[in-house]
Design a protein around this nucleic acid. Structure first.
Lengths: 332, 332
DNA sequence: GAACCTTATGCAAGCGGTTGCAAAATGAAC
DNA sequence: GTTCATTTTGCAACCGCTTGCATAAGGTTC
């Protein structure tokens, strides 16, 4: 079915090299033969087989896009942006869903079998070691939404989760809340760990503020809701909560309103991410925006630059977050 | 970096064919050489390059997953399921984001360049001709969530959108609503067209019921909200609305409650999809469930079967939908 | 038009595999 | 120990494309 180089060469009356060259830019072909070849190619509907080409060039233009966050609506935005940006760069995402497995071994083997040019690990929950495995296998990798380190093993682009914790703490204090609480995701998620540590360290300088900490089992609506229900049943709740994720926040909101309490009058909530849904008028969540687009653009640019320079020294690129004020915190 | 067949062969002291054969099942190798080869392979960490293999076998195990629905949260569930199911079958999804372009030409060329074994077009908005283009290019294709046809050009698996329209109409009548309305997605989306036609044809048998129709620009929250706001401003609203999508419904809900009206007391709303968010307690949308998992499993099974039998006669697989009762319709 | 320098072209080998075919090894039957 | 049928094995060609190298074709200059 597919038409090959050889057929084009025959039709154009030139050698196979000639047609190969007209399809590789920077190669030396005269205008005359180029025209002949292009005409023949157009007639036959030829376009080169990238995979066969990759065999010799060692470039497949394939990028492994691996993630374990297939349940957080924000990741639809993430996939949308990643695919678009990669496509703009002439690259193709090979999607890998980690679902339950978190051992890098299989993914590494798999993506090697497909000779991907690089890998982006898009996850806020996987440990840095996961991404490291690709590097060790000689595959360029960037970890997006991953944990910041001053001395990263691999490229990391994302936000400063510790700083986000601080921002949340400051924002809540600014609004005069005296009794705060942190409602995190899974304790194993690096993002929760860091947000926790920023939040608590910022507050440690303010001993007059009362604060408590709790974690939910996952970054999901139900986890947030259940945890908030539990908190409400167990006596006096805090005045305001920093929920370390928007979905979690929305779950918490729903528990609060079911308990007959009003937001922000009785309880304040601030989330993190600013996913599209947070802006829906019937949710209207005050939250800390994570600059997804910048993170993704930067990630892709980084991976692109690694294609030419695979041993590039690992760097961390962090983008600032900002509070998006909506309706779930009282006025200062 | 990558270790090749040849190196394994040398280490094991056998021919290249021998090691190739131990990695192709069904090939004839003695236990003795197989063991030698496996040992050498393990030692070197060898696994075959699927792309190089594909050159001769014409099988890459790559499946193009193309979609233009990157803004509807239900599609995160769709991508999750698709990737998992494909992975279970030993296939790899090459994701294509149609974003704005809807001309199949580019996608066809692209996916051919990557020698994908098949394509699944996951979209409720693209016309059947889109998928047809792959078939014409000789690539096995199934259109998931696409438009049903009694004589389909390509395999279609999804729901009977016309029937869904009927179900909605019946459900609303059952609950005693006398003044109904249809709030669709874009008029160009095949799913909206069909839901519309089912809804209206069911009602045509009940002339006593008043009914009106309107369409929004997209399957998005804002589109639903804006459209509903417009309706509420323009005089007396209907008693109940069939919004042809959950996101649309949630947008409509938000407009209704902003207008100071209560759901379901003042206005009833029924959606379609039953995405996860519809079940969130603070949304609590009564809706028609689309059996996503079945659709996806069936789609993948179909594409798998086409790998062995590419000219398989096109069929349509439709799965029944059911009303999921929550809180946005009054009791019968 | 000869001499020289570029620029184009084709050949052939190779990328990492698979596979038809013929030869070698094994096993069964006598 | 033969003979013959059945596996196993290796050779070599091929999948579709690129690329180093040697040669051919064009261009300049005098």
């Amino acid at each position: 079915m597919a038409v090959t180089l050889k057929e084009v060469a025959e039709l154009a009356g030139v050698s196979r090299s000639a047609v190969s060259r007209t399809f590789t830019d920077g190669a030396s072909v005269s205008d005359k033969t180029r025209r002949k070849v292009e005409k023949a190619a157009a007639k036959l509907g030829y376009s080169p087989n990238i995979l066969a080409r990759g065999l010799t060039t060692r470039r497949t233009k394939l990028i492994g896009l691996v993630s374990d966050n297939f349940h957080n609506p924000i990741f639809l935005e993430v996939f949308d942006q990643f695919t678009r940006k990669l496509q703009d760069c002439g690259l193709r995402p090979l999607l890998v869903n980690l679902s339950d497995e978190t051992d890098p071994e299989n993914s590494v083997r798999l993506l090697r079998q497909y000779s991907v040019d690089g890998v982006v690990v898009a996850s806020s929950t996987l440990p840095p070691e996961f991404s490291k495995a690709f590097k060790d296998a000689g595959i360029p990798v960037v970890n997006s939404f991953g944990r910041y380190s001053a001395t990263p093993d691999v490229h990391v682009v994302g936000i400063d989760n510790v700083e986000c914790g601080r921002i949340a703490a400051r924002e809540l204090m600014k609004r005069g809340y005296k009794c705060l609480a942190f409602l995190g995701g899974p304790e194993t998620a690096t993002s929760t760990q860091d947000r926790y540590s920023g939040f608590s360290s910022e507050l440690s300088a303010h001993p007059s503020i009362e604060v408590s900490y709790t974690f939910s089992g996952a970054y999901t609506f139900n986890a947030g809701r259940t945890e908030m229900q539990r908190l409400l049943e167990n006596g006096a709740p805090a005045e305001a909560y920093f929920c370390a994720d928007d979905v979690l926040s929305i779950g918490a909101l729903s528990a609060v309103s079911d308990a007959g309490l009003k937001v922000p009058e009785d309880i304040g909530i601030i989330g993190l991410n600013d996913m599209e849904i947070a802006g829906w008028e019937n949710i209207n969540l005050t939250t800390i925006r994570q600059p997804i687009q910048q993170i993704i653009n930067s990630s892709v640019e980084l991976i692109v630059s690694m294609l030419d320079d695979p041993v590039r020294f690992p760097e961390a690129r962090l983008f600032p977050c900002m509070v998006i004020e909506r309706g779930t915190l009282r006025a200062p």
